[in-house]
């Protein structure tokens, strides 16, 4: 019984929690842009990619300087602030050069979506040109917090539980960032102004909120979210420009499922997508093996959907939500 729970925790719950944390951070980035600037930002995946690239170069630079006082944590954590700063600069420049014109011309949202596709292509091309298409690993430090062998020895169970340090980093950094974000939105003056602006632009403008300030702070938040989620995802898995482009889809799914424009929805959507992706494609045979008497255990893998369709799961949820409840689980802004 306990063994079954450990297997489940090891292969489903912990990976889904860390993956879900990253999806939630990504979805928050998308949802903030949607709430404040009112378009679906197709460039977010590649923004994360460029941010991660900056973090990787910083990590290499720090490593070459021999800075490793945060061992056993990976050096990349030190690089995140630099990457975040770089990304803030990048996004503000892009906003000034590209998006501002359409905002002032009061272009329809769909034009902004097409514009963001252009930005996506440029960022994607840049990350391919600068760091190349290959996989980059930049993890250093201790791999495991709890390794399977140690856990078995300690608990005397048949199944081991392994917790990777990167998984914990992902969860902890996501929770910290989310807590800060909600503090910012609920308690600070700028955060309140931002929510007011998202809620009703004209009313906000009438009460003297400066739109440029709102937009700037929105991009700053998005840049920090992109830098943290991108870097931590790269630490946990691997960095590759194309993978980050593909991340756009589950991120969108999470944001839409939760309700575009709703931060709470984005977080829940992220975890929902992660748990269903991993849960539906996991082979439950080993869990069943611990729960059922041996003669009852079926021959098959007890896998609902083959892992090939991991991506398809999130899209199916996305389509189902769009059909049944187009505003998402938490009423976001639709139509």
């Amino acid at each position: 019984m306990l063994d079954a729970a450990i297997v489940l925790a090891n292969f489903v719950v912990i990976p889904a929690l860390s993956y879900g944390s990253l999806l939630a951070l990504g979805a928050l980035g998308v949802t903030l842009v949607y709430a404040v600037l009112r378009f679906a930002n197709f460039a977010h995946g590649d923004t994360m990619s460029v941010a991660t690239m900056m973090a990787i170069y910083c990590t290499w630079w720090l490593q070459s300087l021999g800075i490793d006082f945060i061992r056993p944590l990976p050096t990349a954590l030190l690089a995140i602030p630099f990457a975040a700063l770089g990304t803030v600069g990048l996004l503000l420049v892009i906003d000034r050069l590209v998006y501002r014109h359409y905002r002032q011309a009061k272009a329809p949202p769909i034009t902004l979506v097409i514009v963001s596709v252009g930005v996506m292509l440029i960022l994607h091309g840049l990350s391919r040109m600068i760091i190349g298409v290959d996989e980059q690993r930049f993890f250093d430090g201790g791999r495991f917090i709890v390794s399977a062998g140690e856990f078995k020895e300690w608990s005397g169970l048949k199944e081991g539980l392994a917790i990777k340090s990167t998984q914990v980093i992902a969860i902890v950094s996501a929770v910290t960032l989310m807590a800060y974000l909600f503090y910012f939105l609920q308690r600070t003056r700028t955060g309140k102004a931002m929510r007011a602006f998202a809620d009703n632009e004209e009313l906000a403008l009438l009460s003297g909120i400066r739109p440029q300030k709102i937009v700037t702070s929105c991009w700053i938040l998005v840049a920090v979210l992109a830098a943290v989620s991108g870097t931590v995802y790269g630490l946990d898995k691997v960095y590759k420009p194309f993978t980050y482009f593909q991340l756009l889809l589950p991120i969108f799914a999470a944001a839409v499922v939760g309700g575009m424009g709703s931060p709470v929805g984005a977080i829940l959507g992220g975890y929902l997508i992660a748990f269903s992706e991993i849960g539906l494609t996991y082979a439950f045979k080993r869990v069943a093996g611990h729960l059922l008497p041996p003669s009852w255990v079926p021959d098959g893998l007890l896998q609902l959907i083959s892992t090939d369709y991991k991506f398809a799961v999130s899209f199916t949820i996305l389509v189902a939500v769009l059909l049944l409840r187009p505003t998402g689980l938490f009423r976001g802004q639709a139509s």
Partner: peptide, 16 residues
Amino acid sequence: LRSDYLAIATLAIAEV
């Protein structure tokens, strides 16, 4: 669906 939701939905369906 409104236009940007349609965009996300079609992107997803093509991937599937």
